[in-house]
Amino acid sequence: MSSDFYTSSILPHAAIIIKICRAYTNTEEDFEDYYQEVCLQIWKSRDNFQEQSEWSTWVFRLSLNVSLSLLKKKKNNHQHFASDYSPVELPEERTDNTDDSFKQLYNAIRKLSEVDRGVILLYLEEKSYQEIADIMGTNPNNIGVRIKRIKERLKKILDGKIN
Protein backbone atom coordinates (compact mmCIF):
# COMPACT_ATOMS: atom_id res chain seq x y z
CA MET A 1 0.00 0.00 0.00
CA SER A 2 1.44 3.38 -0.90
CA SER A 3 1.60 5.97 1.84
CA ASP A 4 -0.12 8.39 -0.58
CA PHE A 5 -3.15 6.13 -0.81
CA TYR A 6 -3.23 5.68 2.94
CA THR A 7 -2.94 9.41 3.59
CA SER A 8 -5.40 10.56 0.96
CA SER A 9 -8.02 7.80 0.93
CA ILE A 10 -7.93 6.02 4.26
CA LEU A 11 -6.72 8.48 6.88
CA PRO A 12 -9.61 10.95 6.35
CA HIS A 13 -11.95 8.04 7.22
CA ALA A 14 -9.80 6.58 9.98
CA ALA A 15 -12.25 7.72 12.66
CA ILE A 16 -15.07 5.58 11.35
CA ILE A 17 -12.78 2.59 10.77
CA ILE A 18 -11.54 2.91 14.34
CA LYS A 19 -15.09 3.11 15.74
CA ILE A 20 -16.10 -0.05 13.86
CA CYS A 21 -12.97 -1.96 14.82
CA ARG A 22 -13.35 -0.99 18.47
CA ALA A 23 -16.96 -2.16 18.49
CA TYR A 24 -15.91 -5.61 17.31
CA THR A 25 -12.84 -6.09 19.51
CA ASN A 26 -12.10 -6.23 23.22
CA THR A 27 -8.35 -5.76 23.37
CA GLU A 28 -5.90 -3.26 21.94
CA GLU A 29 -4.03 -6.03 20.14
CA ASP A 30 -7.16 -7.30 18.38
CA PHE A 31 -8.18 -3.72 17.58
CA GLU A 32 -4.87 -3.02 15.84
CA ASP A 33 -5.14 -6.29 13.90
CA TYR A 34 -8.64 -5.40 12.74
CA TYR A 35 -7.62 -1.85 11.81
CA GLN A 36 -4.69 -3.08 9.74
CA GLU A 37 -6.75 -5.77 8.07
CA VAL A 38 -9.46 -3.24 7.15
CA CYS A 39 -6.86 -0.88 5.68
CA LEU A 40 -5.31 -3.73 3.74
CA GLN A 41 -8.66 -4.84 2.36
CA ILE A 42 -9.57 -1.25 1.36
CA TRP A 43 -6.34 -1.03 -0.56
CA LYS A 44 -6.73 -4.47 -2.15
CA SER A 45 -10.35 -3.80 -3.12
CA ARG A 46 -9.97 -0.17 -4.21
CA ASP A 47 -10.48 -1.05 -7.89
CA ASN A 48 -13.94 -2.41 -7.06
CA PHE A 49 -15.16 1.02 -5.94
CA GLN A 50 -17.60 2.04 -8.64
CA GLU A 51 -18.64 5.48 -7.41
CA GLN A 52 -22.27 4.38 -7.09
CA SER A 53 -21.99 5.40 -3.45
CA GLU A 54 -19.84 7.80 -1.47
CA TRP A 55 -16.27 6.65 -0.80
CA SER A 56 -17.00 7.00 2.93
CA THR A 57 -20.04 4.68 2.64
CA TRP A 58 -17.97 2.17 0.71
CA VAL A 59 -15.23 2.34 3.35
CA PHE A 60 -17.84 1.84 6.08
CA ARG A 61 -19.33 -1.15 4.28
CA LEU A 62 -15.98 -2.80 3.67
CA SER A 63 -14.85 -2.13 7.27
CA LEU A 64 -18.01 -3.76 8.55
CA ASN A 65 -17.64 -6.81 6.28
CA VAL A 66 -14.01 -7.30 7.21
CA SER A 67 -14.77 -6.90 10.94
CA LEU A 68 -17.64 -9.40 10.74
CA SER A 69 -15.43 -11.88 8.92
CA LEU A 70 -12.56 -11.46 11.37
CA LEU A 71 -14.95 -11.93 14.28
CA LYS A 72 -16.23 -15.15 12.75
CA LYS A 73 -12.70 -16.31 12.13
CA LYS A 74 -11.75 -15.60 15.72
CA LYS A 75 -14.77 -17.42 17.09
CA ASN A 76 -14.05 -20.42 14.89
CA ASN A 77 -10.38 -20.47 15.65
CA HIS A 78 -9.30 -23.29 17.89
CA GLN A 79 -6.52 -21.10 19.20
CA HIS A 80 -8.07 -18.98 21.90
CA PHE A 81 -7.31 -15.29 21.95
CA ALA A 82 -6.64 -13.54 25.23
CA SER A 83 -9.81 -11.54 24.70
CA ASP A 84 -11.90 -14.72 24.74
CA TYR A 85 -11.32 -14.88 28.45
CA SER A 86 -11.17 -11.22 29.36
CA PRO A 87 -14.22 -9.28 30.42
CA VAL A 88 -15.64 -6.92 27.84
CA GLU A 89 -14.04 -3.61 28.69
CA LEU A 90 -11.75 -1.00 27.24
CA PRO A 91 -8.05 -1.41 27.91
CA GLU A 92 -7.17 0.44 31.11
CA GLU A 93 -4.35 2.55 29.72
CA ARG A 94 -6.68 4.05 27.15
CA THR A 95 -9.55 4.89 29.41
CA ASP A 96 -8.05 7.41 31.81
CA ASN A 97 -9.62 10.39 30.11
CA THR A 98 -12.67 8.58 28.95
CA ASP A 99 -16.11 9.48 30.15
CA ASP A 100 -17.65 6.62 32.20
CA SER A 101 -20.96 6.78 30.37
CA PHE A 102 -19.13 6.53 27.07
CA LYS A 103 -17.14 3.54 28.27
CA GLN A 104 -20.33 1.84 29.40
CA LEU A 105 -22.04 2.62 26.11
CA TYR A 106 -19.18 1.11 24.10
CA ASN A 107 -19.22 -1.99 26.30
CA ALA A 108 -22.98 -2.23 25.86
CA ILE A 109 -22.59 -2.00 22.07
CA ARG A 110 -20.10 -4.86 22.20
CA LYS A 111 -22.74 -7.00 23.88
CA LEU A 112 -25.08 -6.68 20.89
CA SER A 113 -25.17 -9.19 18.04
CA GLU A 114 -22.72 -8.62 15.18
CA VAL A 115 -25.43 -7.24 12.90
CA ASP A 116 -26.97 -4.98 15.56
CA ARG A 117 -23.55 -3.53 16.32
CA GLY A 118 -23.19 -2.54 12.67
CA VAL A 119 -26.66 -1.00 12.54
CA ILE A 120 -26.25 1.08 15.71
CA LEU A 121 -22.78 2.29 14.69
CA LEU A 122 -24.20 3.52 11.40
CA TYR A 123 -27.07 5.17 13.23
CA LEU A 124 -24.77 6.88 15.72
CA GLU A 125 -22.66 8.11 12.83
CA GLU A 126 -25.83 9.85 11.63
CA LYS A 127 -26.19 7.80 8.47
CA SER A 128 -29.65 7.93 6.93
CA TYR A 129 -31.93 4.89 7.08
CA GLN A 130 -31.42 4.55 3.33
CA GLU A 131 -27.62 4.51 3.73
CA ILE A 132 -27.84 2.04 6.60
CA ALA A 133 -30.12 -0.17 4.52
CA ASP A 134 -27.73 0.03 1.54
CA ILE A 135 -24.76 -0.94 3.66
CA MET A 136 -26.53 -3.75 5.50
CA GLY A 137 -28.31 -5.06 2.41
CA THR A 138 -31.85 -4.53 3.64
CA ASN A 139 -34.64 -2.01 3.13
CA PRO A 140 -35.00 1.30 5.00
CA ASN A 141 -38.42 0.45 6.47
CA ASN A 142 -36.90 -2.24 8.66
CA ILE A 143 -34.08 -0.08 9.92
CA GLY A 144 -36.17 2.30 12.03
CA VAL A 145 -37.80 -0.50 13.98
CA ARG A 146 -34.53 -2.33 14.37
CA ILE A 147 -32.81 0.79 15.71
CA LYS A 148 -35.63 1.34 18.20
CA ARG A 149 -35.18 -2.23 19.45
CA ILE A 150 -31.41 -1.89 19.66
CA LYS A 151 -31.69 1.37 21.61
CA GLU A 152 -34.11 -0.27 24.04
CA ARG A 153 -31.70 -3.15 24.48
CA LEU A 154 -28.76 -0.78 24.98
CA LYS A 155 -30.72 1.13 27.60
CA LYS A 156 -31.50 -2.11 29.43
CA ILE A 157 -27.83 -3.13 29.33
CA LEU A 158 -26.78 0.33 30.58
CA ASP A 159 -29.38 0.18 33.36
CA GLY A 160 -28.03 -3.23 34.37
CA LYS A 161 -31.32 -4.96 33.62
CA ILE A 162 -29.66 -7.41 31.22
CA ASN A 163 -26.09 -8.57 30.70
Partner: peptide, 8 residues
Protein backbone atom coordinates in the same frame (compact mmCIF):
# COMPACT_ATOMS: atom_id res chain seq x y z
CA UNK B 1 -12.89 13.65 25.33
CA UNK B 2 -11.52 10.14 24.89
CA UNK B 3 -8.39 8.87 23.20
CA UNK B 4 -10.40 6.33 21.29
CA UNK B 5 -9.75 7.90 17.92
CA UNK B 6 -5.96 7.67 18.02
CA UNK B 7 -4.96 6.05 14.74
CA UNK B 8 -2.86 2.95 15.26
Amino acid sequence: TSEELVVP
